[in-house]
C-alpha cells in the first residue's frame, strides 16, 4: 500500500516537474534570444515576463483548429499525439536525485530503477520520428512532407552515432541501469580528475552532444523546420494545441536529453572531490542531490539556447555528410578505443 502511494507521488511529481522545466525553458529561450540580440523579449506578463508561457498556453488552447481539406484526418490528428507521448514518457527511468529517507523508509529519487532503463530511454526516444513523419504525410502538403522526410532521414541518421556513443558508456560501466551509472561516478579518476563519464568518454561525449542537437531538431540541425526553405516543415498545417504539442514536445525532449547528459557524463548529483552526503542528513541530502542535478541540467539547457544564436543552420547535404561520414566512423573508433582500454586494463 505504502509502496503504491510513494510510486504515485513520484510519478505525478516528476511528470509535473518536467512539464514545469519545459515551460520555463520556453521563457528562457525567448529571453535568452532577446538578450543575445540586444532587445528585451517578453517582459509584460508577470515579473520579467515569467508568465509568458502561461499566456502562450492559453492562447494555443483557445485557438481554432483548421483541418485542411486534403489532409488525412486520422494521421493528421495522430501526428502530434505520437510525437508528444514518447517525449513525455521518456523520463520514467531517468534519476532525479540520489535517495531520501522518510519515516525510516529509503526512497530512491527515480520513478523506476529497472535494469534496462538505458534501453527504455533509447527505444522511447526513437518513437518520436513516427509523430513527425505521420504528421507531415497526413498534412498532404509539399512543405510538410518534405519536412517530414528530412526529419526522418536526419533523426535516423543521428540515432546510429547516438546509440554507439551510449554503447561505449555501457562498455565502461557495465550496466543498463541509469542509477548504477550515476552512482559509479563518485570519487576521483586517475587520482586527480572527478570520476565523471566525460573524462572516461571524452570523444563519446562530443559525439553524444552533436547527436542530441540533431535528435532534438535544434539549430544548427533544424532543417526539418527550416523556415527559409520549407515554411515550417512538418507542422506547416498545424495550429492550436496540436502545434503546441509539437513545440512543447520538443522542449520536453530537451529536458530529457540534458538530464541524460548530466547523468551519463557529468556525474549526476556528485560534486567533484567532496562527498557532501556525509555532512548532510538523509532528508536534506535527498533535496540537495536533486538541486545539484538540476543545476547541472540548467546549464545544458542554457547551452541549447546559446548554441542556437551562435551557429548558423547547416545545408542538408552537410548534415547527412556529417552524420554518416564523420560521426558514425568516429563513434565506431570511440567504441574500439574503449574496448581496447578495457582489455588492456583487465
Amino acid at each position: 500500500m505504502e509502496g503504491w502511494v510513494i510510486a504515485i507521488i513520484k510519478v505525478v511529481f516528476i511528470w509535473v516537474w518536467v512539464l514545469l522545466i519545459a515551460t520555463v525553458m520556453t521563457w528562457v529561450e525567448r529571453r535568452g534570444a532577446a538578450m543575445m540580440q540586444d532587445r528585451l523579449g517578453p517582459n509584460r506578463a508577470g515579473p520579467f515576463g515569467l508568465f509568458q508561457p502561461l499566456a502562450d498556453g492559453i492562447k494555443l488552447f483557445t485557438k481554432e483548429e483548421v483541418l485542411p481539406k486534403k489532409a488525412h484526418k486520422v494521421l493528421w490528428n495522430l501526428g502530434p499525439l505520437l510525437f508528444a507521448l514518447p517525449a513525455f514518457s521518456a523520463y520514467a527511468v531517468v534519476p532525479f536525485g540520489d535517495k531520501i529517507i522518510l519515516g525510516g523508509k529509503e526512497i530512491i529519487l527515480q520513478v523506476s530503477d529497472v535494469n534496462i532503463g538505458f534501453l527504455y530511454v533509447l527505444a522511447i526516444g526513437s518513437l518520436a520520428v513516427y509523430g513527425i513523419v505521420l504528421g507531415g504525410w497526413g498534412s498532404n502538403n509539399k512543405f510538410s512532407i518534405l519536412g517530414g522526410l528530412r526529419s526522418t532521414a536526419q533523426l535516423i541518421s543521428y540515432e546510429v552515432p547516438l546509440g554507439l556513443a551510449l554503447l561505449a558508456v555501457v562498455f565502461v560501466y557495465g550496466s543498463f541501469s541509469l542509477r548504477d551509472i550515476a552512482l559509479a561516478q563518485q570519487g576521483t579518476f586517475l587520482g586527480f580528475l572527478p570520476n565523471w563519464g566525460v573524462f572516461k568518454q571524452p570523444l563519446g561525449f562530443i559525439l553524444y552532444m552533436v547527436a542530441i542537437y540533431a535528435e532534438a531538431n535544434r539549430v544548427p540541425f533544424d532543417l526539418p523546420e527550416a523556415e527559409s526553405e520549407i515554411v515550417a516543415g512538418y507542422h506547416t498545417e498545424y495550429g492550436s494545441m496540436e502545434l503546441g504539442l509539437y513545440l512543447f514536445g520538443e522542449y520536453v525532449n530537451l529536458v530529457t536529453l540534458s538530464t541524460l547528459v548530466v547523468v551519463l557524463y557529468f556525474g549526476a548529483w556528485h560534486i567533484p572531490y567532496i562527498d557532501i552526503s556525509k555532512f548532510l542528513g538523509p532528508v536534506s541530502w535527498g533535496i540537495v542531490s536533486f538541486l545539484i542535478l538540476y543545476l547541472k541540467v540548467a546549464f545544458f539547457l542554457w547551452l541549447f539556447v546559446w548554441v542556437r544564436w551562435t551557429i548558423p543552420r547547416f545545408r542538408y547535404d552537410q548534415v547527412m555528410g556529417l552524420g554518416w561520414k564523420a560521426l558514425i566512423p568516429l563513434a565506431l573508433f570511440n567504441l574500439f578505443i574503449t574496448a581496447l582500454f578495457i582489455q588492456l586494463s583487465a
Binding site: A7, F61, P80, L81, F88, S112, M241
Partner: peptide, 23 residues
Amino acid sequence: GFGTIAMYLAMSVIGVGAMFLMS
C-alpha cells in the same frame, strides 16, 4: 519497476490526451 513505468505511461496518456481534448 515496470508497474511504475506503466503508471508513468498512463500519466503521459492522460496528460497529453487532456491537452489535446481541451484545445
